[in-house]
Every structure is written in C-alpha cells, then in structure tokens.
Amino acid sequence: MPGWIADNALLIGLAVLDGLSYAAAVFMVAVGLNLIFGVLRVLNIAHGSLYAIGGYSAAALGLFVVSRGLPGWLVFPTLLAASVLVGLVLGPPIERLLRRTEKEEPVLQLLVTFALFMILEDLQKLLFGVQPVVFDAPLKMLGTVDIPFGQDVIPFTAYQLFVLPGIALVTLAGLAWFLRRTLYGRMIVAVTTDREAARAMGIDAAKVTLLTFTAGAALAALGGALASPTASLVPGVGAQTIVLSFAVVATAGLGQIEGAAVTSLLIGLGRSFAVYFEPELEVVVPYLIMVAVLLVRPQGLFGVPETRRI
C-alpha cells in the first residue's frame, strides 16, 4: 500500500483536486435538500427540478447580461440573483402545497413533490426548450491555473479550483453561523430536533417551514446556477442530479449541514479515485459509500438516534 501511494503520489494529488471540486458541486445540491428534510421531514423530489430551473434561469439572465455588453464581473452576482429569484418564486407556493397535506401521511407529502417534479419537468421544457444550454462566460473569464505534474503541467479552470469549493465553503460556514447564532436559525434547529417540543415552546413552526423551504429552494437553484457554466442543461438533468443528493441526505443524517458536507466530500473523493483507478466503479461509488456508512451508523454520519417513543 505505501508503495502504491508513493508510485501514484502525483495522480493522487490530481484526484484530490478533482474530488474537491466535485464534492463542492454535490454539496451545493444536497445541502438545501438536507435542510428541508430536517425541518419538513419530506424528501423533496422536486429539488432536482429547482436545480434545473435555477441553472436555466442563471444561463438566461447571464446571456442577457453579456448580450447587453454590461461589465463581465456582473455575471457572478447574476448567478446568485437568479437563484434567489427562483427560490422566492417557486419556494413559497410549493411550501403551501406541502403544508396543506401536513396532517396527512408523510408519503402523501413525498408524492406531492413527485407530482411537482413531473409538472416542473415539462414546464422547464416548455420554457427553455430541448436544446442543451450552456453559459460559459464565467468559466472563460477566470481562465485556467497550471498545476505542476512531474515534468508536466495540468491546466485546471480557476472556476473549478477556486470558485466552486469557495462558494461551497462560504455556504457551509454561513449556514452553520446562521443556524447556531441567529434566532431564526436556532428556531430551525429546534424544529429539526423535535417539532412538537419546539411548537410547545411557542415557535411558529409554519414560519420556520416557509423560511427553510424558500432557502432550500434557492440553494437548489444556486446549485444549478453554479453548474451552468460547465454543465449542459438538457431535459432530464434534474432527475439525474437529484438521485445523488438522496444518497447524501440519507448518509449525512437528518438535517445535518456538516453531515452533508462530509458526505459530499466522501462521495466526491470516492468518485474521482474511482475514475482514476477503477473507472467502471464510478457510478456505484456514492451508493456503496451510503451502504457502508449506514451499516456502521444506522442513523447516518451525524444523525442522533431518535428517542424511542412509547
């Protein structure tokens, strides 16, 4: 083993760089889903559609900014603005629908999001068409960075190397601060931990739910917006992205932001090592990680065992 590491030290270094940027992308999609799951206890299947619509909207707004000849740096705030817009426009109505079925069985809420996923999937097609959409101005603007590799150099895009992991870290730190240090944040944590007790203490659960869902939707859209400079947006992109986030949520533990971060890191690194050393395993790596984690920790990486209610 040490011999293998020494032989492949340079490759391992590259794999780590690739893994980090992939992890950042995974985290950005999964963190909103996890937040929503923590508070509403519903796995939002429409999260993938929000991701796709966020990506399309960012690309559309970005192309508009570029076509107007506005200053180039504006594309970055545009990505953010598009995400917030999608979150504000789509988040509250979806949350309302979910709240209508709050008293029913949890599976009904899950299916509300499944139905929304189907509706949004076609809506996205009607709005944005079927031709692949890319908005690569941010990518091109930042250029590449040469990473030494023995005698050789490997160019990485600055976007992939710095922007994606940077935004993921800022999001993680910002959310952690918000959840621990602000009143609303603490209310969210309280509801996540024990909804009934939080209600009994006078926390307005409805308000917390609305806030969380809107924030979660905006995060999903931000995930899509951040992907739009490199990924091609096509019909069906949401369904394929979201299934990975499901694995992250279950592996992380309910509503755990840090759990989502660690899981994303595991998945990102696991995947890139697979591509480097055993490419055929690439697709199954996230699921293998999930099964392995849950075998050891049935409540997820950072989850707390639920109290046994009698």
Partner: peptide, 24 residues
C-alpha cells in the same frame, strides 16, 4: 490508455479531462 464510460447524461467531465491531460 484509458476507457471511460461516464454515466449517460453526465454534466461534469473534469475528472476525466484531468486524467486525459495527464495520460496524453
């Protein structure tokens, strides 16, 4: 030198690209 079969509908090829840059 390498055989990659990324998932159908994949959006991120940065890992494959890095590997190919190194393999030449």
């Amino acid at each position: 030198a390498a055989e990659f079969f990324p998932r159908f509908g994949a959006t991120d090829f940065s890992t494959e690209v890095t590997r190919l840059l190194a393999l030449r």
